[in-house]
């Protein structure tokens, strides 16, 4: 009788245990937890630094008679080139100034705009990007050399930690010489670089 009682009680205990587990499991079963994770996200050190290489650049004259051409010199600081004074007298006379644009950062840069500003009180037939034609004088921004046809354009990329030569030219492109002295003052090109 005692053995039977103990057996019966043991069975009851087991059944009750089972019921407790089933109740818990039954409520937890219809739920799922999904996980997304990144092992690591790294941000490296990045720098943005683009500008002209500091320098004083002598203009280079070319034409039929270079003795009659005066190109002077130009000063380049990080964001500006200034101080250019030149004399061009005859068709074909040209002055060129070579600068270095340096991207010292590790982020590539891209030209987003090139804005020509015409000389004061001067009519310019062409005023577009790297080219400005104002009367007898044509101004251009080129890559690499004074005779290069490779002009600076919007979208040009300068990789991080690299540099490139940029040449400003002013050429007497008219067909006849002026009878009197004629001045064009205050021309410039503005180059905007953005992350590229």
């Amino acid at each position: 009788m005692k053995r039977l009682d103990y057996k019966l009680i043991s069975i009851i205990i087991i059944i009750l245990f089972f019921m407790v587990i089933c109740v818990s499991f039954g409520y937890a079963a219809l739920s799922s937890s999904l996980k997304v994770s990144f092992g690591s996200t790294t941000q490296i050190k990045t720098t943005w630094d683009i500008g002209f290489e500091n320098a004083t650049v002598n203009g280079v004259a070319s034409g039929n008679d270079v003795s009659k051409i005066s190109c002077g010199s130009a000063t380049a600081t990080s964001a500006t080139v200034f101080g250019i004074n030149m004399t061009l007298a005859n068709p074909g006379d040209k002055c060129s100034y070579t600068f270095t644009v340096v991207n010292s950062g590790n982020i590539g840069a891209k030209i987003s705009a090139i804005t020509p500003t015409k000389p004061a009180a001067t009519t310019c037939e062409t005023l577009s990007g790297s080219t400005m034609i104002c009367g007898n004088i044509t101004y251009k921004l080129r890559y690499d050399s004074a005779n290069s046809t490779n002009l600076l354009n919007v979208g040009d990329v300068l990789d991080g930690e690299s540099q490139r030569l940029v040449v400003l030219t002013a050429e007497y492109s008219g067909e006849t010489a002026e009878a009197d002295d004629f001045y064009q003052d205050g021309f410039k090109f503005t180059i905007n670089y953005v992350q590229g």
Partner: peptide, 27 residues
């Protein structure tokens, strides 16, 4: 823009878990 400082790790998917390998975004 440039790929400097950027690399996208591959995501490994196993059932209820997605794990992305080491990734870089810097600019």
């Amino acid at each position: 823009t440039s790929s400097t400082g950027r690399s996208c790790g591959v995501a490994t998917i196993s059932g209820t878990q997605v794990t992305v390998a080491d990734t870089k975004v810097s600019k």
